[in-house]
Write a protein that binds this DNA or RNA. Structure first.
Lengths: 220, 220
DNA sequence: ATATATTTTTAGGTTAGTCTAAATTTTTTA
DNA sequence: TAAAAAATTTAGACTAACCTAAAAATATAT
């Protein structure tokens, strides 16, 4: 029994919205994320529940079942591997690959994914720093900090982004903030929490709270 | 105005069935090729005609318009480039790639195709010897012979296959008949038109008319 | 604790792509 | 060239995924 493109998208989004703790996801949140209406979401939830892919009780929100989780993680694995391919092999920018990977992730061939994974050298992270689930479906989220949690004087490594919007990624490109960059927090403005940071021991620049909130970093 | 997966498939199949001369394709032939019923084909033909992608007069069969031809050739370009990728980069056999390419060919991104083409080194032929249309949509079919047209004593180069069925391609693999192989026709059996051929100056083997009819070759 | 607001579900409808059965047109054959 | 056969189209219906409007359930506020 094959899942449709649309079903896979719902499962992927439920996975993302329910987070590590597997918290219930609301109908409205899904309507927002899928760009559909709540009524359409309800229809789909009934269908996914019938297929045993989600736990669903009317008015109570949904969580993934084990089998739903499996499907979601497979889709995420494909999405992230294709993103690596697009950036590493085809030369796309990290700001250009999301929509294309959104299509490629639904190509249904197990052997394709595994050959792609091998070809790419079994990457552990995608171009945005997101972890790639392994072939068995194990997905371990590294516990990165958000830059807002870093104190003045600390040096951290840039490890990923929370916002994948092209405009945000392009902004980082212009600022020279790339994956693996060393970020030293020089100063935090008390008033608006904007910060001045030094990148790779080179130029110092000001970043807004909005930017800080979307940067995942790691102490060295 | 985007064309759907299904519409693209119809256009691709009409292109294939109408051949170089652009001959009319019948409703039944399309039903056969799309694995649907004639009534469904009629519905789709009306739709494609409304979009200006085919010439359609009831009961008279269809041909592609210029704009339909353009779409078909784009799909064919994508299909064949992805096949090259699957074989050359991911290590699939030529008998394994058709179904996967059938999915990949509908991924809609011009820039993806062009980057893929560049990455692959602008290949001119796919793993089955079929010519790859260029970015401008020029598709030049080389005029190969069919092995049945080759006389005893002639040496020819194996250039492609007409049948893409995995079972046929696997049969060729077992026989050592690969793209680029030199085939010398040693003998043709008058009764059933089976032939004995020598491959690359090495082993001689018997091939049935069924096989000969599906091998595209070139005089040297 | 009741009234109001919000969220979610139900009811009924739409479109794309498919189907079967019946009607119509074209082709073949006697 | 008329009858039979084959091909094609029309009519009416189905499913998946969406919609709007109205009803029902839950949450919030006075």
């Amino acid at each position: 029994m094959q899942n449709s493109f649309t079903e896979e998208n719902y499962l992927k989004i439920i996975h993302a919205l329910s987070g590590r703790e597997g918290v219930e996801v609301s109908t409205n949140a899904l309507a927002e994320s899928t760009s559909t209406r709540a009524a359409s979401v309800t229809d789909m939830l009934r269908k996914l529940a019938d297929k045993g892919l989600i736990h669903y009780k009317k008015y109570q929100g949904v969580t993934l079942t084990e089998s739903g989780e499996k499907v979601a993680i497979k889709v995420i694995r494909k999405h992230r591997l294709w993103e690596v391919f697009l950036v590493e092999k085809l030369g796309f920018g990290w700001d250009e690959v999301h929509d294309i990977a959104e299509e490629l992730e639904h190509i249904p061939s197990e052997v394709l994914v595994e050959k792609l994974d091998t070809y790419l050298g079994h990457p552990k992270f995608d171009p945005h720093g997101d972890p790639i689930p392994d072939a068995k479906g194990n997905l371990t989220e590294p516990d990165y900090l958000i830059l807002t949690d870093v104190h003045v004087g600390e040096k951290v490594l840039m490890m990923g982004v929370l916002d994948h919007a092209p405009s945000f990624l392009q902004h980082l490109d212009r600022s020279g903030i790339t994956l693996g960059a060393v970020i030293e927090v020089k100063e935090i403005n008390e008033y608006d929490k904007s910060a001045s940071v030094q990148i790779n021991g080179g130029p110092t620049l000001f970043i807004s709270l909005e930017v800080s909130k979307n940067l995942l970093v790691q102490r060295r």
